[in-house]
Amino acid sequence: MSRRAALCVPANEPRKVAKALGSPADEVVVDLEDAVPVDEKVGSRSTVADLPARDHGALAVRVNAVGTPWHEEDVAACAANPAVDSIVLPKAESAASIRALGERLEALESAAGRTRPLRIQALIESPAGVHQAAAIGTASERLCALIIGYADLSASMGRRVEASWQFAQDAVLLAARLGGVEAIDGPQLTVADDERLAGAARSAADLGFDGKWVIHPAQIGTVQTAFTPSPEEIAEAREIVAVIEHAATEGRGALTWRGRMLDEALAVSARRTLDRSTGKEPA
Rank of each mutant, 00 (worst) to 15 (best):
V63A: 02
A5I: 02
I124P: 08
E33L: 00
A111E: 14
L143A: 10
P127K: 00
A265M: 11
D152H: 07
A247V: 01
P82I: 13
D194R: 12
A218D: 15
A135N: 12
G221I: 08
L207M: 15
D206W: 00
D210G: 11
E141D: 15
A18N: 10
V243P: 06
V48L: 05
V48T: 04
A163D: 15
A201R: 00
A183S: 05
Y150R: 01
G149S: 03
R3S: 04
D85V: 10
E264Q: 09
A107T: 14
E73A: 14
E141Q: 10
T68I: 01
A139E: 02
A100Y: 03
I124S: 02
A200C: 01
R142G: 08
N64M: 04
A35V: 08
P82H: 13
A25M: 01
A79P: 14
F167G: 02
L143P: 11
T115P: 06
A192K: 12
R119G: 12
L262F: 15
L274W: 03
R114M: 12
L146F: 07
R159S: 11
A5W: 02
A204H: 06
P82W: 06
G179I: 08
E13V: 15
C8T: 03
I87M: 01
A92R: 00
E245A: 14
E103M: 14
Q188L: 15
G149F: 06
S140I: 12
A111V: 11
I120S: 01
A134D: 15
E109Y: 07
E33D: 07
E195L: 14
V75I: 05
L173D: 09
A76Y: 02
L262G: 14
R45K: 12
V214G: 03
L143E: 04
S97Y: 03
S94W: 01
E264F: 12
V42M: 04
K91H: 05
V223F: 01
S110E: 10
A77D: 05
D263I: 09
S126P: 01
L173K: 08
L105W: 05
H216I: 08
V28M: 06
P231S: 12
A155L: 14
Q219G: 05
G67Q: 02
G180D: 05
A139Q: 04
R62E: 04
A283E: 10
L89D: 03
A60N: 09
E40S: 07
R252G: 12
A226H: 10
L274V: 09
I215V: 14
L197D: 09
T47M: 15
L108C: 11
E106M: 09
V30A: 08
S94N: 07
A112W: 02
A151N: 04
A247R: 04
T68Q: 06
K41Q: 00
P37C: 15
L207W: 03
D193W: 10
L178P: 06
K41E: 05
F167R: 07
K16N: 00
T138R: 14
R15C: 13
A248H: 04
A201W: 09
D26C: 10
E232N: 01
A218S: 15
A176F: 13
E236L: 13
G180Y: 07
A226E: 10
S277Q: 04
A35L: 09
S44I: 04
G179M: 03
E245M: 06
L178A: 15
P10I: 00
P10C: 02
E72M: 14
A248D: 13
A237F: 02
R159M: 14
P229M: 12
L59R: 06
G186E: 03
P231H: 08
V36I: 07
R104E: 12
M261T: 13
